[in-house]
């Protein structure tokens, strides 16, 4: 039995090209491919772990990470490189150079966006604002930290729309409750808003107003927790209109790959996290039609 699309195409052919409208409307679209690469909790791991490291000997580091990124990109598909926060803190590189080489690395690797992790505040908001303003050639997206009364005003985007080929991709970001994680003086006057409603608001804009083909949330909430604390899995379940939640904070290694979580409307959302310290590259290869 012919599908509706074939049926219409056939009928336009039968009409001898007179009926142009249905053909234009249902013209066979070019299938689109998209490669999403993502990292989280980089923690200033510019160099690989030392060869005598008990847990990760010789692993990670930007020199190896770049090789893998390039290998993945060599497929030639349109690609997106994303990060989920906590770029900073963890090696003396950060103490010594204040985050500059980390942001330069992200520029060179071609990151499109990151979100705000709790450790990104470690040198204060003035410092972070200077870094973003002077160095970041990528977007910093977050929708639940109100920074309008802080030095970060105007530097954090609630959402981002990226065109890749014929695809329109919507990206938003969400951060963890700073209480007990970020010393109060390092996030002075920043207001933390509810992740679920903040994200839903941006996702609705991305779907309904911006007509995005797919919506990605960059999260620094953490993969999952016992109890009621908001996490990536819970965010996936409590919202709708999101296809991908890429996360961080809990340094979760998902060796079996991403997981699928049913959302509020019974549709599934891909949730993933890529360990930490540049030890893992999350890779999603997607076909669109």
């Amino acid at each position: 039995m012919p599908t509706r699309r074939e049926f219409l195409r056939n009928s336009s052919l039968l009409a001898g090209g007179l009926l142009l409208a249905p053909d234009a409307l249902f013209a066979k679209r070019e299938a689109q491919k998209l490669l999403i690469l993502h990292t989280n909790d980089f923690h200033s791991r510019l160099e690989s772990f030392p060869d005598n490291h008990p847990k990760y000997p010789g692993q990670g580091g930007i020199a190896r990470l770049k090789t893998l990124i390039d290998q993945q990109r060599s497929s030639g598909d349109f690609s997106l490189l994303l990060d989920c926060g906590d770029v900073f803190q963890g090696t003396p590189y950060f103490n010594r150079f204040g985050g500059v080489p980390e942001y330069k690395w992200m520029n060179m690797a071609g990151y499109e966006a990151t979100t705000l992790g709790n450790h990104d505040f470690d040198m204060g908001m003035e410092h972070l604002a200077d870094l973003i303003h002077n160095y970041a050639r990528f977007a910093v997206v977050n929708c639940n930290y109100d920074v309008s009364k802080t030095p970060l005003k105007g530097l954090i985007k609630p959402f981002l729309v990226v065109k890749k080929g014929k695809l329109k991709i919507g990206i938003t970001g969400v951060g963890i409750n700073p209480e007990g994680l970020i010393p109060a003086h390092l996030c002075l006057n920043m207001v933390y808003n509810d992740p679920v409603s903040s994200v839903q608001e941006q996702v609705d804009i991305l779907n309904k107003k911006m007509h995005c083909d797919t919506v990605i949330v960059l999260s620094h909430l953490g993969f999952e927790y016992p109890g009621n604390q908001i996490s990536d899995k819970k965010l996936a379940a409590d919202t709708h209109g999101i296809q991908f939640i890429l996360g961080g904070h809990t340094h979760t290694f998902l060796n079996d790959g991403p997981v699928g979580i049913e959302n509020k409307k019974g549709r599934k959302v891909v949730v993933n996290q890529a360990g930490w310290a540049g030890l893992v590259l999350g890779i999603l290869r997607l076909d669109f039609k």
Binding site: R29, A31, Q32, S48, D51, P57, G58, Q59, G60, G61, I62, A63, R64, L65, K66, T67, L68, D70, W105, M108, K166, L167, K168, N207, K208, H211, C212, D213, T214, G241, Q243, F253, L254, N255, G257, P258, V270, N272, A274, G275, G278, L279, V280, L281, G282, I283, L284, R285, L286, D287, F288, K289
Partner: peptide, 27 residues
Amino acid sequence: SCAPYWISGGSGVNLTIKSSVPKDSSM
């Protein structure tokens, strides 16, 4: 959604950056 494209397939994997991955010289 009213967007023209939707996901029809694909795959996901988390790749470990092992010490056997060569280092990129420019980095």
